[in-house]
Design a protein around this nucleic acid. Structure first.
Lengths: 205, 205
DNA sequence: AGCGAAACGGACGAGGGCGTCCGGTACCGT
DNA sequence: ACGGTACCGGACGCCCTCGTCCGTTTCGCT
């Protein structure tokens, strides 16, 4: 990886990333490449030269979002109270996703083996550990499975609203409901069996 | 409304509706009109003649789904136990939506004032009554609001999976979780405030 | 059977997204 | 300051979708 980019090239690259982040965040993942280029003030060719495929751009654009995600999970895991940690993770991640339209799509992506997979897998693994501890502490219902979390994230993605503010509010309430559904409770009725959604599923178009 | 359609015209109309139902159901609302025409074995012009706008077609195609929806709600309302009725409504409607990709989009549609609005409003009203009775019976949490149901339906829409079967399974479990979150429970923590999603919201593109 | 009208569907032009090529521009080293 | 070159971006061709027009087919009535 020779970093020998000319100064104007580096500049353009940076501006493209900024534009992509802004647009993905606001509009979702399916903004035309053209529009990203336009907002970045470059031609389409330049964009394609820097990021031959949209996935490359997406991966770069959400690298720090993913880092934020990992940070949240790490914080949650660091909490001495695993249940509180888990709640924190759910709340924060839901909010993160509510604020960023594109990130959700990228995260739960139907994209096959995106480069972020490593980070995603790591995150899921860590949460799995946290969940186990929360179960052991008797706060998380014993029949919770990791796919339930994926389910909640997917579901959270389904929440649409006119404004970001409304979406965030709705998402917060949703997270609250999810948490209470996950909480261990003496007289819980059994749940229908979980469906496999999580890691593998290529989820064809 | 002169029903004076020629027999071949009626036949075509019926085949178009069938095709539309099948495709909307399987692929969602954004299948090309062309493809519907192709599957129905007619030309594009014929399709456009019968249904000048996509909304018209959508409305026709989901008329019976909406009826099914109303039936479910009616059954729920008829149940002497309002809580059980409400659970039934949630489960059935989630399943209905999980089975039909397009219906969810049509139901929670961002479409402005679709002709189904009447049915939708009616449904919401009826559920509101049911919910009130369930609250009075002490089974539904008092801080439940109707928008929570909309929230759940939206969220249910977010659930994606490779196969319909998987989606239905996931949806069932999700409904189970939602129900338990809604259930009145002695030591419930307060929820974040609800966001207005329901009836009005034009929800711009 | 034969005629008028209703209905059909292939064909058209516009609009937009995609990925690529090439003449021109601006940077960087000397 | 000047040449070489890395880099830029407008322009091109391709494909897909949309909604409409018009010559042709088919129905239904007598």
């Amino acid at each position: 990886m020779p970093h020998k980019l000319r100064s104007d090239a580096m500049d353009n690259r940076a501006r493209i990333q900024d534009a992509a982040r802004a647009l993905f965040s606001a509009e979702g993942l399916d903004v035309p490449m053209r529009e990203i280029a336009r907002r970045a003030g470059v031609g389409p060719a330049t964009l394609y030269r820097h990021f031959p495929t949209k996935q490359t751009l997406v991966a770069e654009a959400f690298a720090d979002q993913l880092r934020a995600c990992r940070t949240i999970v790490d914080e949650g895991c660091a909490d001495p109270d695993p249940w509180r940690g888990l709640c924190l993770v759910i709340e924060k991640i839901c909010e993160l996703h509510a604020r960023d339209r594109g990130f959700t799509e990228a995260f739960l992506s139907t994209l096959p083996g995106a480069p972020d997979v490593a980070g995603r897998e790591y995150t899921l693994k860590a949460v799995a550990g946290l969940a186990q501890r929360a179960k052991d502490a008797g706060r998380l219902r014993p029949d919770f499975v990791l796919d339930d979390l994926v389910l909640v994230l997917m579901a959270n993605k389904g929440i649409h609203a006119a404004s970001t503010a409304t979406r965030v509010r709705a998402s917060r309430r949703f997270a609250g409901l999810a948490i209470q559904a996950f909480e261990a409770c003496p007289h819980r009725a059994p749940l229908p069996p979980a469906a496999r959604l999580g890691s593998a599923a290529p989820a064809g178009a």
